[in-house]
């Protein structure tokens, strides 16, 4: 098998996820142990001034994680992955995850690839998360 090689400017994705649903937020609450009711109880989220439930930031980050493992696999190629949470994500939002390679370093016969990654809401272009990842190939 020929190893995948990367160059600055290469694109990752896009990975377009199905619309976020309230059921998914309940499932993610259960799977993650984050039971903050701002993600699952509309009345609570409205009283908190959010206008309704919002998605867990970590759910959106997991979507970007999928973009990365779809690109390099889940077997340990990923070295670092960090994001800032920007705009809130709500049920119905379609998240588009993308990346751009910004740096490639050749070391010990491996490529250390740095890329900028984002998740944006397809409907209106809101930036949900933005960050950086480093992987080796």
């Amino acid at each position: 098998m020929t190893r995948k090689r990367f160059a600055v400017g290469d694109k990752l994705g896009p990975l377009v996820k199905p619309p976020v649903t309230k059921t998914q937020l309940v499932k993610y609450s259960g799977a993650s142990g984050d039971f903050n009711p701002i993600h699952t109880v509309d009345e609570f989220a409205r009283e908190a001034g959010l206008g309704g439930v919002i998605a867990h930031g970590m759910l959106t980050m997991a979507f970007v994680g999928q973009l990365l493992t779809d690109t390099v696999g889940a077997m340990g190629a990923l070295k670092t992955f960090g994001v800032r949470f920007r705009e809130m994500v709500r049920p119905g939002d379609v998240l588009v995850c993308e990346g751009t390679v910004t740096e490639v370093e050749e070391r010990d016969g491996l490529q250390y690839v740095t890329c900028e990654v984002t998740a944006t809401v397809q409907q209106d272009g809101r930036l949900a998360v933005a960050g950086t990842a480093v992987f080796t190939v």
Partner: peptide, 26 residues
């Protein structure tokens, strides 16, 4: 993996993952 909607078999199928399941990055 179900909650985040990631179909990668290494999160579900022990054989595909080489004996033990692997956890997603987050």
């Amino acid at each position: 993996a179900d909650a985040i909607g990631d179909p990668n078999p290494v999160y579900r199928d022990v054989e595909a993952a080489g004996g033990r399941l692997i956890a997603p990055p987050t």
